[in-house]
């Protein structure tokens, strides 16, 4: 993973750049472009062979003492338990369309984890966290889907210009990232296409236009 600020290569999963200390975009949240091609076949669960009172690891052939749940050498499971859920990454299905103005495309943001939909009903919509104390009630209130409060109160806005949608970061604390790219510069508008992934802090949305 290249640091968007200084370009230094960091291990995938790093939260901060090793060199310049900048926060790196969250890892593992978005599929790489050729995701389906790289999905490996599920590991066949072979019964663990018993050799002379030893448990032979199916992955590395290391002989473990009886009773071990994991290989003492490579850490693979010895209990024959099925591997962790392996599922082919789901293709982002176009969600069921919501009724809108006839003849006018309906755009919305869909939160990835909860699949909650946020229709874009006005020409300019601000997304953020609600703060009644400060009298901030964003058009797209993300308070409920952003359980860790990484989204700023006024995080970004989505602007409609004819058939074109634009996204603009409003100087958020944790940044906005489009399709795993570098952090968007605040105040600069970027055009959105169907299926684009927009990340706000730790929360990810898919932009869908139908």
């Amino acid at each position: 993973m290249k640091c968007p600020v200084c370009g230094v290569d960091n291990l995938e999963g790093s939260a901060y750049c090793d060199d310049c200390g900048s926060k790196l975009p969250a890892a593992g949240a978005a599929p790489p472009p050729q995701s389906q091609a790289v999905a490996p076949p599920p590991v066949a669960v072979t019964p663990t062979p018993l050799v002379g009172g030893k448990l032979t690891c199916p992955a590395c052939s290391f002989e473990n003492n009886l009773g071990e749940a994991f290989c003492s050498d490579c850490g693979a499971s010895l209990t024959g338990a099925p591997p962790a859920p392996v599922s082919v990454p789901s293709v982002q299905q176009p969600p069921p369309s919501t009724p809108g103005v006839p003849g006018r495309p309906v755009a919305k943001l869909i939160e990835k984890k909860t699949q909650r939909e946020f229709p874009l009903t006005a020409d300019v919509m601000i997304a953020g966290r609600q703060s009644p104390a400060d009298n901030i009630f964003p058009d797209l209130d993300l308070t409920e889907v952003d359980t860790d409060s990484y989204v700023s109160r006024r995080h970004l806005q989505i602007i409609r210009q004819g058939d074109q949608y634009l996204v603009e970061d409003l100087g958020s604390s944790n940044g906005t990232f489009l399709n795993e790219g570098p952090r968007l510069n605040p105040g600069i508008q970027q055009s959105l296409n169907n299926g684009d992934r927009i990340q706000l802090g730790q929360t990810e949305f898919v932009f869908v236009i139908s």
Partner: peptide
């Protein structure tokens, strides 16, 4: 668990990540 399911790999433990933030400040 190693998996190809993106809905799982996107999950982070926020308490650990908070500590990671603070350690990065220290570093």
């Amino acid at each position: 668990a190693y998996t190809s399911d993106y809905s799982l790999t996107g999950m982070v433990d926020s308490y650990v990540m908070n500590l990671v933030d603070l350690v990065s400040v220290f570093r």
